[in-house]
Each structure stands twice: as structure tokens, then as C-alpha cells.
């Protein structure tokens, strides 16, 4: 009763923000991302292409963190599930001529179904065993995509109809940005509720959680299904944006890329990965294109950063931000970082 009353006292703007689980600073960041491709240095096609890639990684890291940071199971076959969503959508569009806009959602459903299955299968497994299981599932999927040539054209690559007719990257950017927001709002909304608490309890100590009346079966399956559904949605975008699918996209190294961003951003925070992805991918792209005589340097930095964060700062960027910037003295800054207080 108290909280509903307190919430009704907020103005409309704050209420919308609260509904979207965004802080004012996050909203500002989002607005900046929306107008970024219209501002001169960034309005070139190749930079918008880079922005799309960054937003895809950002969205993927949010949905990856939903499993890894909460129920503490690293889904090592994450990009294989992304690939499954992409392939399902692409094949449906290719064979049955349905619109890519419907195909994306069917792809997401199929990925969600696999996530449901994976959740059931890994129920008896914990920690490293579950990660290995997901990893092997991903490898098997990749192997299938390579060998089922009659369906996927194998490593020749499957040509896919694109979402829009125009060659411009701008509409794609807004679609993936919206997908990123949807991914964040759904996962954050779920983890803000009691369910999020249950996820954390299971992740920290399964036996203690079970003793206090939490049914791990239900929560783990829900978590896997949701995370994989979102992965499939992103996979659909991937397919209809790049216009070509090869089994290589399901490779473990892609998962490692997402994993690195999610962990550098801060596990268990959801927003950390999304925030870090943009400057990080941009810096990597700069290193790659300006030092093209040193191939692989950007990935070396990737690995190094992952190792350093894992050893010395396991909370990642989110923990760093929480520690140093979450309690500013200035009232306006405080509002920007923390939003209006409810109750």
C-alpha cells in the first residue's frame, strides 16, 4: 500500500522510467545512442555498421548475463542458440516465403524451445558440468549446421532476405537498438521481481535455496527459456541484417566475445555489458583498422582484459561505477544516477 502511494506521487516521466527499469542517466545514454548516427562523424555507413554490431553484442551480453550472472550457469553454447534462431528464421523465409518479420519471432520461439530443453537437460548438473553441457550442445548444433547441407547449404553460407530493401544501415540500427531495450527491460523486470531474488539464491547456494522453499527446477527452466528466446530473437536480426549465415557464426569464439563483454561490464548487473559494449567494440575496431599490420592485436587485448578483470576486479565496470559514482553529493547528479526515490 505504502509503495503504490509513493509511486503515484511520482510524475509521469519518472513513472515511465521506473516501468522501464531505467535510471535517468540510462535514459540520457539511450537518447544519445538514438541521435548518434545522425551526428557528423558517426553518420558514415561503416560507422553505423559498427554501431549495429556493438548494439548486437550489447543486447547479447545482457541476455547472456541473465543466465551467467544470476543462476550462475555460464551458457557456453550461447551463440549456437543465436545461430539456431537465425537459421530457423532464414530457412522459413527462404522455403515458405513468409515475411522476415514473422520469421524472426518463429526463430525466437524455436530457440526458446531449445532453451527449455537445455534447461531440463542441465537440471541435474551444476557449475562447470552445466557449462560443458551447453558448450557441447553448441558444438553439436554447429556440426549439424555444417553437415546438413541440403538444409543450410553448410559452409557455403545461406543467403537470407534482408529486413529492409534500402541499402542504408540506419533502419537496422534502430531495430537492434529497440531489441536491446526490449531485452534489457524484460530481463531487468524479471530480475527486479521476487523471481530475481530466487535466481540469485539458486546461483549462490542451490541447497540453501532449496531448503528455504525455492523450487530450482522451475526457476532454472524459466531462466534458460527466457534467455534463449531472447538469443533467438537476436539471431533473427543477425540473419536478416547481414544477409548471409555460415556455421562459423555459431562458433565458441563468438560466445567468448559476448562473455568477455558481459564480464568486463560486470556480471549480475545486466546494464554493465550494454554500457561497456559500445566504447569497447569501438576501441577494438579502431585498433583493428589502424594497426592492420598487426592482425589479432585487438583480440589479444580482449583476452588480456578478460584475464585482468577476472583476477583483479571481478565485479567489472558495474561494481566500479557502484563504488565510485553511485553516491554523488550534488542533488541533480544524484537524481541522474539513482532516479527518484520510491517509498
Amino acid at each position: 500500500m505504502q509503495t503504490t502511494k509513493a509511486k503515484s506521487e511520482l510524475n509521469l516521466f519518472d513513472r515511465v522510467l521506473d516501468l522501464l527499469s531505467l535510471k535517468p542517466l540510462g535514459a540520457i545514454g539511450l537518447v544519445i545512442l538514438v541521435i548518434l548516427p545522425l551526428v557528423p562523424p558517426f553518420n558514415q555507413e561503416y560507422l553505423i555498421r559498427w554501431l549495429c554490431a556493438a548494439a548486437l553484442i550489447a543486447a547479447a551480453s545482457v541476455s547472456f548475463d541473465f543466465t551467467a550472472g544470476f543462476i550462475n550457469i555460464v551458457n557456453f553454447g550461447y551463440y549456437a542458440i543465436v545461430g539456431l534462431g537465425g537459421y530457423t528464421s532464414a530457412i522459413l523465409v527462404d522455403r515458405f516465403g513468409i515475411s522476415p518479420w514473422i520469421g524472426i519471432f518463429v526463430g525466437a520461439l524455436s530457440a526458446g524451445l531449445l532453451g527449455f530443453f537445455l534447461g531440463i537437460v542441465t537440471l541435474r548438473l551444476r557449475g562447470i558440468f552445466a557449462a560443458v553441457m551447453a558448450w557441447f550442445m553448441g558444438l553439436a548444433l554447429m556440426g549439424l549446421a555444417t553437415k546438413a547441407v541440403w538444409l543450410t547449404r553448410g559452409s557455403l553460407g545461406l543467403r537470407v532476405e534482408r529486413l529492409f530493401d534500402s541499402p542504408s544501415n540506419l533502419p537496422y540500427y534502430y531495430v537492434i537498438l529497440a531489441m536491446m531495450l526490449v531485452t534489457y527491460v524484460i530481463t531487468k523486470g524479471v530480475t527486479r521481481s521476487d523471481m530475481g531474488l530466487a535466481f540469485k539464491a539458486i546461483g549462490q547456494n542451490m541447497d540453501a535455496a532449496r531448503t528455504s522453499g525455492i523450487n530450482p527446477v522451475y526457476y532454472r527452466i524459466v531462466n534458460f527459456t527466457l534467455s534463449c528466446t531472447l538469443a533467438g530473437l537476436l539471431g533473427g536480426f543477425y540473419a536478416h541484417y547481414y544477409g548471409i549465415l555460415t556455421p562459423e557464426m555459431m562458433h565458441t569464439s563468438k560466445t567468448v566475445e559476448v562473455l568477455a563483454v558481459a564480464y568486463i561490464g560486470g556480471r549480475g548487473s545486466l546494464w554493465g555489458g550494454a554500457v561497456v559494449a559500445f566504447p569497447f567494440i569501438y576501441a577494438m575496431e579502431m585498433v583493428r583498422s589502424s594497426l592492420s599490420n598487426l592482425p589479432g592485436l585487438n583480440l589479444i587485448l580482449y583476452g588480456l582484459l578478460l584475464i585482468l578483470v577476472m583476477i583483479y576486479y571481478s565485479g567489472g565496470f558495474a561494481a566500479f561505477f557502484q563504488q565510485h559514482f553511485s553516491k554523488p553529493k550534488n542533488i541533480i547528479l544524484y537524481y541522474l544516477v539513482n532516479g527518484k526515490k520510491t517509498a
Binding site: V256, G303, L304, I311
Partner: peptide, 16 residues
């Protein structure tokens, strides 16, 4: 789990 993720980092480092 943490040491497993560390070895993932080592792998990326050595390959590249």
C-alpha cells in the same frame, strides 16, 4: 568457474 573463464582468456590470448 572463475578459473575456467581465466583459461578461456588464456586461450584467446595465445591463439591471437
Amino acid at each position: 568457474m572463475n578459473s575456467f573463464l581465466l583459461t578461456v582468456g588464456i586461450s584467446v590470448l595465445l591463439v591471437n
